[in-house]
Computed example of a mutant assay.
Amino acid sequence: MEIQGSKTALGCTQPIKTSRRIVLFPLPFQGHINPMLQLANILHTQGFKITIIHAEYNSPNPSNYPHFIFKSIKDRFSEIADQLGTNKDPSYFVRYLNKSCVEPFKECLARLLAESDTDLVACVITDAGFYFTQAVADDLKIPRMVLRTSSLGCVLAYDALPFYSKKDCFNLTKEASEYCNRGRVVKWSPQQEVLAHSATGCFWTHNGWNSTLESICEGVPMICSPNFADQPVNARYVTDVWKIGVMLENGFEMKEIEMAIRRIMTEKEGEEMNERISCLKKKLNISLNEGGSSNESLQNLVHYISSL
């Protein structure tokens, strides 16, 4: 797992001698795939063999991970993929995948367990959103762990707030108006590399947890435009708790965008945000160093999986 501005997590620890395999299964959305592959890399550096079961939709490129084995399963997501731009309820797509992937996942995992190194499979790690996988794991008698890709603060908010009690209750972003100005629009860019560049002064983000973490890792204050799911909660932490960003309260109103950029880039408030986020960046890097809280948690995870 590479955190920009920090060494590889657990990079200084001695790998455990093991021939055991871990099977991982991410939701097929980038904010879920990236953390799962990062976790897979950490576990691989600790001596575990890695197999990734993945849906056909948005499948990872195996050539980028030659040290992993990839197994693709049918997901039928193409039948509803055209709704991604119009359906603002993310739970709809998660519920669909939790039905369409049941049999393909079970058959794939059963085949893996039936191979000659059956006793070497330590556990299966699935995205928390794939809730159907617990029943499959129980049926196949294999330990299951989950990876939740949202922040702890968001988990606490889920427990306290009546989420989804009303339709689109967390779709907080108004319809965007298109306009032309100075700038450049590209289909894709290496986000971590852009954030790490010295010319980057602020980051306009929807505040998915990956993007929020990456911005903190590089010490870049944020302009927040959350949309759904965990994004509004993350954005409120950024603006109201940690005070390292500015919320666009009225969607994409030109004047407000200009003011947000000025607040971060030219005003005293922006200097204070830079100081606070630099402090958070240092704390994050310390947590990943030997003896740090994140480092120790990862080591505990490795030892626990080895004990299964």
Rank of each mutant, 00 (worst) to 15 (best):
residue 111 R to T: 08
residue 157 A to H: 11
residue 296 E to H: 09
residue 238 V to N: 09
residue 156 L to N: 01
residue 22 I to D: 01
residue 226 P to S: 07
residue 79 E to D: 11
residue 245 G to Q: 02
residue 30 Q to H: 14
residue 237 Y to Q: 01
residue 254 M to A: 14
residue 241 V to N: 10
residue 110 A to W: 01
residue 144 R to E: 12
residue 153 G to M: 03
residue 10 L to Q: 04
residue 124 V to G: 00
residue 44 H to G: 07
residue 257 I to F: 09
residue 71 K to F: 09
residue 39 L to R: 00
residue 208 G to A: 11
residue 33 I to G: 04
residue 222 M to S: 11
residue 162 P to V: 01
residue 83 Q to L: 15
residue 67 H to R: 13
residue 300 N to Q: 11
residue 103 E to Q: 02
residue 117 D to V: 06
residue 226 P to I: 03
residue 126 T to M: 14
residue 45 T to N: 14
residue 193 E to N: 12
residue 85 G to P: 11
residue 284 L to W: 03
residue 35 P to W: 01
residue 176 A to K: 15
residue 104 P to S: 08
residue 92 Y to L: 09
residue 202 C to P: 00
residue 231 Q to W: 06
residue 22 I to V: 13
residue 117 D to Y: 10
residue 18 T to I: 13
residue 280 L to Q: 03
residue 16 I to N: 10
residue 86 T to E: 10
residue 261 I to G: 01
residue 56 E to K: 15
residue 249 E to Y: 05
residue 302 V to L: 07
residue 99 K to Y: 06
residue 105 F to I: 08
residue 2 E to F: 09
residue 83 Q to R: 14
residue 202 C to F: 02
residue 102 V to R: 02
residue 291 G to S: 07
residue 238 V to Q: 04
residue 217 C to Y: 04
residue 18 T to G: 13
residue 114 A to W: 03
residue 299 Q to L: 15
residue 153 G to W: 01
residue 214 E to I: 00
residue 272 E to N: 12
residue 253 E to D: 06
residue 14 Q to T: 14
residue 28 P to E: 03
residue 100 S to Q: 02
residue 145 M to Y: 14
residue 189 S to Q: 12
residue 297 S to T: 09
residue 289 N to R: 08
residue 87 N to P: 10
residue 156 L to G: 00
residue 122 A to V: 05
residue 235 A to C: 04
residue 301 L to I: 11
residue 167 K to M: 11
residue 37 L to Y: 06
residue 41 N to Q: 15
residue 257 I to Y: 06
residue 57 Y to L: 09
residue 274 N to K: 15
residue 201 G to V: 09
residue 116 S to Y: 06
residue 263 R to D: 12
residue 97 L to K: 05
residue 125 I to F: 00
residue 9 A to S: 05
residue 274 N to A: 13
residue 102 V to W: 00
residue 168 D to T: 00
residue 183 G to P: 10
residue 245 G to C: 08
residue 90 P to H: 02
residue 257 I to V: 10
residue 186 V to K: 13
residue 291 G to T: 03
residue 131 Y to M: 13
residue 117 D to Q: 06
residue 208 G to K: 06
residue 261 I to N: 06
residue 247 M to E: 02
residue 281 K to M: 09
residue 182 R to F: 13
residue 13 T to W: 11
residue 200 T to P: 08
residue 256 E to R: 05
residue 249 E to T: 09
residue 244 I to N: 00
residue 46 Q to W: 08
residue 209 W to M: 08
residue 285 N to Y: 03
residue 121 V to G: 04
residue 75 D to V: 02
residue 34 N to M: 11
residue 245 G to R: 02
residue 99 K to M: 09
residue 253 E to L: 12
residue 184 R to K: 15
residue 88 K to E: 15
residue 242 W to L: 07
residue 249 E to I: 02
residue 101 C to P: 01
residue 206 H to Y: 02
residue 248 L to P: 07
residue 305 I to Q: 00
